[in-house]
Design a protein around this nucleic acid. Sequence first.
DNA 1: GTTTATGTACAACAATGTTGCAAAAATGCA
DNA 2: TGCATTTTTGCAACATTGTTGTACATAAAC
Lengths: 138, 138
Amino acid sequence: MARYSKIKNILKSRNLRITDGRVDVLEFFFRKGKTLSIKEIQEELKDSDRVTLYRILNAFTENGVLHKIPDDSGQVTFGLCHDTCDAEDHNHDHMHFKCLDCGTIECLEQQVPEVSIPGYQVKEANLILKGLCKSCAA
Amino acid sequence: MARYSKIKNILKSRNLRITDGRVDVLEFFFRKGKTLSIKEIQEELKDSDRVTLYRILNAFTENGVLHKIPDDSGQVTFGLCHDTCDAEDHNHDHMHFKCLDCGTIECLEQQVPEVSIPGYQVKEANLILKGLCKSCAA
DNA sequence: GTTTATGTACAACAATGTTGCAAAAATGCA
DNA sequence: TGCATTTTTGCAACATTGTTGTACATAAAC
């Protein structure tokens, strides 16, 4: 499917109106094919309003289009959710790799290992690995 | 060992000077025995300077006294490192549980499951679980 | 006690994120 | 297509969070 149609479908399926800003943000994610920090998105979409961008990202996060990647650096990073995510049944189990050298954060396809703790009810699991990515380790 | 002596030893072993602010922060962590957000620490130590507190927390993080817990909420939370951590050989593998009900973040003693990704060099692993904690699930 | 290195307090700044509201645009329907 | 409704945007203003520079104060070492 053409990229624009795909983006339109994603927005429609979440009952989000198709606006230039939203399409631009999603198009940027598909084009880069990687996780993006707010800073990177802002630099790409220089002429757009900061508040609008925050609202777009929040809407996307709430509706399972993007997921926020926890990071202790304070720099919030977003990644595209897999096609299986939707507003009701959002798959929160993600595994990410942050390269200590180049700083890139990648979404890994591997499944987060199952963990159970007696007495606790685990609903989501986020595994953040740090080290050297494929290109930096080589 | 008495708490104050313990705190003094921790600071000395990191070559950090023993000051009122640092002792207060550490004493608060030992007293609560749990992870603390910057907000909580600020509320406890109302009369202390905000900048000083940030510098204390940064010094503690850099020297393996505390560890920063990644969280997508933006609220930075700190936890006491285990006794095995020191400035040179800081054990970065942590497992945390965040309760979606009461918001508390707990450090779990369980070991983070080993994960390896072909071509990557994994140095740290952070597993963040979310759900209902023991008291909220009951 | 005196010296020296380190840490603190204050002011000012920078970055990040939020709220309220009027104007604009997207959708649905006649 | 044109109109009504609802959602989204853009702007201003504010709130929170974190940083930098610098003079002063304190801890550690002698």
